[in-house]
Amino acid sequence: MNLPDAEQLLAELTDKIRSDVTKDTVLVGIYTGGVWLAERLHKDLECTLPLGTLDVSFYRDDFHEIGLHPQVKPSNIPFEVEGRHIILIDDVLYTGRTIRAAINELFDYGRPASIRLAALVDRGAREMPIAANYVGADIVLPEDKMLALEQKDNRKLSLNLYNKISSE
């Protein structure tokens, strides 16, 4: 199937977020794809506060089934979360479980005033009552496909489709 151009989607997503951004807005990207997007948004939206990054491995609900993610990266929240308006950024919104974990992790840094969610792609099939405030595109995909954002050496982003590896 034809996938939309990630760079085009990011441009559209940036425009949707722009009017809601103030000097107090902070962006938090979720590893890995969400951090690439957040870095670009942080620059294009001219955010003044530093960018936050989250690796939700320590908050995932499938730890007891699949163990610790093989490559955990340090989360870095270089600002006070207490009372802050946060925009959480992920590449693909799917079951909602990653976002649940990210919200829980953020609350261990403090009590934010609000959290909004931006996703480049919403592929539906939610398992949690979670919705995005800003979405680049809605794409319906078969269950056995995995949609992933990739970044090339020139920092150009693209969307790619893979067959899910069976859990055997």
């Binding site: 690796d55 320590f58 908050y59 490559q71 955990v72 340090p74 261990d108 840094y109």
Partner: peptide, 23 residues
Amino acid sequence: LKILDTAESFVGVTQRDIKKVPL
């Protein structure tokens, strides 16, 4: 190396106000 890399992420946890994860 995986133990050392994972520990890097836990250093961040131990520097927060809430020094705890639900793992």
